[in-house]
Design a protein around this nucleic acid. Structure first.
Lengths: 246, 246
DNA sequence: CAGTGGTCTAGACCACGCC
DNA sequence: GCGTGGTCTAGACCACTGG
């Protein structure tokens, strides 16, 4: 009745309070009943319940009812791009290009980049800094056919991805990244200014464009003493049948 | 008209195809227009569009319209619990309890577990195996007040979290986890059957219950040669104003 | 101002679980 | 069969953007 703006959120809070008074496995009142009790339409009530379903607070079973879910921890690690990542950690990101060369893909990279081993690719190595101190070494590989004429200077500025779109019209579609623990070798230790064989993260990322072409294969080595991944763990939706209240 | 089951998904595919024909920054037809063209109600159309918004394909701007989003790579690393994780990798998980002891929390753990340094805590060390071969060492700390009477045998079975709920009525609320690269020490190398100073992951996780109590602090060392994190990267919702078609 | 997305309604039919 | 969630509709008003 009052302002619409608040209604859905108000309903959400109301239902949340209700759930808090119940035990795991307990059924909520039916949607029609609850909507009437609260004084909103069923669609509005459903929207609030959907929110709780996504949060994993409740589980819906068609034909049966809606039940308080048994929380279950799953892990969602979220990382952002280097620059954003550093800024979110209160550090100032910067970059130094160490080398730029054109080369044959060779057997290994040709597989990663999905080109012929004899095709030319561009390899650019950059030192990534945070607050002026070395943080990571990033080695970027791209087929020259994709990033024709890319110079070393182009990368000192900012995002490679923005540049890909603005200059080459490339729209990214998806990527796959793996993370492994490793230790630094001589070269890496010198560049990152850490002792030989220091613990480090090894990231490998392959990214594809919307047109299906493989755009880049990136190998990054992050200092283990300065960089750490963090994850917020939240209860998620439960696959198991709602546990009957013990 | 036909079956309801398929309608919403059909609309989603239709809109997805439409988006594919547009460039980044282009506006979609208005919801009312599009709904009429497709032949569904606005609510149904909205549901499909909401799906695309969550996927980051389009951006809605109130009063302005709906626009094709500029893809932006962000990273969502997803890991599951040890057992699930192993099973999803085609391995058979198992567990061996190495030790169980009650001890004073001490300065460091008392901070992690949010108890007094003089409070008693339980420490259980488990070797986690995959296909009978060592994969990780997990050291669990919990205040005895929380898991009173927990025996070593209780943990050989399965999930600690399910046990927490069934036996102690503890409902988990949230957790924080950090991941660092490290190298194995003598003890760890022996247990994990890897050479001294092998690369490894160090996970540290703190989990809280719904009532606010800190339930556990877990420190896990994973073999770097057998364990690797993988992430599917997908374009996400864009904060930046939709780029006008170049 | 007209047009857009954001929200809400009251009612309808379907598919499914349970008794 | 009855009650549940799942879906869909046609129309309404609001808040905001833009010319």
């Amino acid at each position: 009745m009052t302002v619409q703006q608040a209604k859905y959120e108000w309903v959400l809070e109301t239902v949340r309070d209700l759930v808090a008074t119940l035990d795991v496995g307990d059924a909520l009142p039916s949607e029609r009943t609850l909507a009437a009790d609260i004084g909103v339409s069923r669609m509005t009530l459903r929207r609030a319940v959907e929110h709780l379903v996504r949060e994993g607070q409740v589980v819906r079973r068609r034909g049966a009812g809606t039940f308080v879910a048994a929380p279950k921890i799953s892990q969602a690690l979220t990382i952002t791009s280097f620059s954003e990542d550093m800024r979110s950690r209160g550090l100032v990101p910067s970059s130094r290009t160490l080398s730029r060369e054109e080369m044959y893909a060779g057997p290994r990279l040709s597989r990663c980049l999905e080109v012929s081993p004899g095709d030319h690719i561009l390899r650019i190595v950059r030192l990534r800094l945070a607050d002026e101190a070395p943080m990571a070494i990033e080695t970027l590989h791209s087929p020259v056919g994709v990033v024709d004429g890319l110079s070393a200077d182009d990368l000192t500025g900012g995002s490679f991805y923005e540049l890909l779109h603005a200059r080459f019209g490339i729209v990214l579609e998806r990527g796959v990244q793996t993370v492994e623990p490793t230790v630094t070798d001589e070269t890496e230790s010198e560049l990152l200014e850490v002792p030989l064989h220091s613990p480090a993260f090894l990231f490998e990322r392959t990214t594809w464009a919307r047109d299906g072409r493989c755009v880049e294969f990136v190998r990054s080595v992050y200092r283990g003493d300065r960089y750490r991944l963090t994850a917020e763990l939240r209860p998620t939706a439960v696959g198991s049948p709602a546990v009957p209240s013990s």
